[in-house]
């Protein structure tokens, strides 16, 4: 989870944040970390670059990118399917 947080910080250039500043279950968007639609695009790119995962269905986005934990679970599930 910490690695994923580091990747998110780097991808989104969240300069003042450390992994421990982002809660596992903290909402990433709006009232949580305050990310927006451009950040969502960056997160899609992150999944593809780091984990070779293409988000096939855009409707899945809100659920996948809800928190760091939901992202991690999605990555783990995808890696298990592909292994």
């Amino acid at each position: 989870m910490t690695d994923l947080k580091l990747q998110i910080i780097a991808q989104l250039n969240l300069q003042d944040l450390k992994p421990e500043d982002i809660g596992d279950d903290q909402s990433l968007f709006v009232d949580g970390l305050g990310l927006d639609s451009i950040d969502a695009l960056e997160l899609i790119v992150l999944l593809q670059q780091q984990y070779k995962i293409k988000l096939a269905n855009a409707d899945e986005g809100p659920a996948v990118f809800k928190t760091v934990r939901t992202m991690a679970e999605y990555i783990t599930a995808h890696q298990a399917t592909n292994s």
Binding site: I38, L41, E42, V45, Q48, Q49
Partner: peptide, 13 residues
């Protein structure tokens, strides 16, 4: 680097 498959959105915009 990514064989024209990926575009970094922020930099592109």
């Amino acid at each position: 680097e990514y064989n024209e498959e990926l575009l970094t959105p922020t930099a592109f915009i």
